[in-house]
């Protein structure tokens, strides 16, 4: 099998072949999920803990459903109400959990690198469900699967990523993944929302959205992360919508068969016009949600296989 990772901490450490393996397996789970009886037992007997240090409804329920459909015992821990409030450190929390012998740990944390830190301290497989402004690998993978299904390929596409790039882990993981698969990436947004040094990342930068969208095959809108902005990145939401919000007029400049994506939750009328989001001919936003469950099933499945192989090797090693 060409998927060798022990954890899924980011797209950065995946090889293109591993990405393809995961997407291929996810396709099988898309089929499973469309059946009336959506059940498999590949994770039967395994324990999956979802640990969310940051609020999330969509991602958490997607992971929960993915685990349950594969037969794992799934537990959700909302860390905002837990002992973290009582001063327990991240590592102590990890060690406590580790002692409960979970097999799969899904973690979201507001600090970049926190999931990497946690992964060093536990014996199970860890999936990063978003850390600070660093990575959100399953989002990039579900976006990739959505694109591959809609466009028939994941190479040589012109992909425009628009909006709050600086605060977005989705943008980071996506530009790494889409770059690895040899696509042309354009970043569009106000300079205040562009991360420093992005010029050196092999992407094209556009302040003017019309220019950036021209001829694009995929238009990926990002949420304006209002809760992360500690002040003054844009003058007002209405000016933002005027200059960087996706409306029919701007979308008309993209390729005629361009698809529109959004990781959700959407701010209608801020970064995207409601009618475009709902246009079933252009918007694949609902497909993204569907692919999310399938991709997470594939990720859990592959990591569980590697975990079993590792433990099996260890056990036989002891006997010899």
């Amino acid at each position: 099998m060409s998927f060798r990772a022990r954890h899924l901490l980011g797209i950065d450490h995946l090889k293109p072949a591993e990405i393809v393996t995961l997407l291929d397996l996810a396709e099988e789970y898309v089929a499973l999920n469309r059946r009336t009886v959506k059940h498999s037992d590949v994770l039967a007997g395994l324990t999956q803990i979802n640990m969310f240090f940051e609020n999330s409804t969509r991602t958490q329920s997607s992971f929960e459903l993915a685990g349950k459909r594969l037969g794992a015992d799934v537990m959700n821990m909302s860390m905002q109400t837990s002992s973290v409030k009582k001063g327990e450190t991240l590592i102590d929390t990890a060690l406590t959990l580790n002692a409960m012998q979970p097999d799969l740990l899904v973690v979201r944390h507001p600090n970049s690198g926190a999931v990497n830190l946690l992964a060093e301290k536990v014996n199970c497989a860890v999936i990063n469900a978003g850390d600070g402004r660093h990575e959100h690998p399953t989002q990039a993978l579900l976006d990739a699967l959505t694109i591959r299904r809609a466009k028939g390929r994941l190479q040589r596409l012109t992909i425009a990523i628009c909006g709050d790039i600086a605060h977005s882990r989705v943008a980071r993981s996506n530009l790494i993944l889409l770059g690895k698969m040899e696509n042309r990436i354009r970043l569009i947004g106000p300079s205040t929302l562009m991360p420093a040094g992005v010029k050196d990342m092999g992407v094209e930068l556009y302040e003017d959205m019309r220019e950036g969208l021209t001829g694009a095959d995929v238009v990926m809108m990002l949420r304006l992360q209002r809760e992360r902005m500690d002040g003054g990145f844009i003058p007002s939401e209405r000016e933002y919508f005027h200059r960087w919000g996706l409306d029919a007029e701007k979308l008309a400049l993209a390729a005629p068969d361009a698809i529109v994506m959004h990781p959700g939750p959407m701010n209608r009328g801020v970064e995207i016009d409601g009618t475009i989001a709902d246009d079933i001919n252009r918007s694949v936003i609902q497909d993204q949600v569907e692919m999310g469950v399938a991709v997470r099933m594939a990720a859990l499945d592959l990591l569980a296989r590697n975990l079993r192989a590792e433990r099996g090797a260890k056990a036989s090693g002891v006997m010899v």
Binding site: D12, S112, G113, D131, G132, R133, H134, E135, A166, R169, R172, P195, A196, G197, V198, D200, M201
Partner: peptide
């Protein structure tokens, strides 16, 4: 320090 490294790793940075 702000730059490509801090941006890729998502670390709050200063110029």
């Amino acid at each position: 320090t702000s730059g490509k490294f801090a941006s890729l790793y998502g670390i709050p940075a200063v110029s």
